[in-house]
Design a binder for these strands. Sequence first.
DNA 1: TTCATGGTGTAGACAATCTACGTCATATGG
DNA 2: CCATATGACGTAGATTGTCTACACCATGAA
Lengths: 113, 113
Amino acid sequence: MTPASPRNQLLYGTLDLLILRTLVYGPAHGHAIAGHIQRVSEDALRIETGSLYPALHRLEARGWIAAKWKTSDKGKRARYYRLTRTGRRQLAVEQTRWQQLSVAVTRVLRPAD
Amino acid sequence: MTPASPRNQLLYGTLDLLILRTLVYGPAHGHAIAGHIQRVSEDALRIETGSLYPALHRLEARGWIAAKWKTSDKGKRARYYRLTRTGRRQLAVEQTRWQQLSVAVTRVLRPAD
DNA sequence: TTCATGGTGTAGACAATCTACGTCATATGG
DNA sequence: CCATATGACGTAGATTGTCTACACCATGAA
């Protein structure tokens, strides 16, 4: 019941960028990526699993990240993602796009003198 | 054919905010609102009619803007929108939300030292 | 045994945007 | 008189991304 009622969709359009940016620090698995983004943003950005994994699969399908199963020490299986070369290019593209959007919106919001 | 293929959806989530902000200057009709946003953003933000009018209806349905048909001088009929009191409150809410998102994303993007 | 935690995942609902149309009226040029 | 451009409003349908709400499996602790 009460199926969706989304009140938390601030992320729209920025999630791919955030994930790509996080992977610059090196390969990481999904949970760790989400945790990193949440910590660095000081809890402002929280990625739900229903957004996280589809996003990772999407990015992988587009060739921007690549995955490998790894079993660390105590049989803990996790899927580690790394940034590909084209992923790095895509990161630059999305960073620019974000910058442009940010500047443009700020211009519109600027109070009239 | 070739129905959607959306490559231009930078606006996602910000359109309501932009419209509300524009109406602070006084009532305006749809076309003029879109034109204002495009000019002030220096052509970075272009609102398609298929986004504009649904957004206006949406905002009106929520009571954030109110509309009135006006026929100016030479039989030019246009629908003028004005910001309501609750719309002004909503503008503040969305401005804050944008600010928070902007800060949070910037934190994540900040290059590692 | 039960429970918490860490990790991956899917199904389905929902909202917002886009492209591609269409309408109507006025003005302009031939 | 007719065609065409322009200004203005609008809808239909597709696509996409995010969300909530689940499920699964393994480990470790009570």
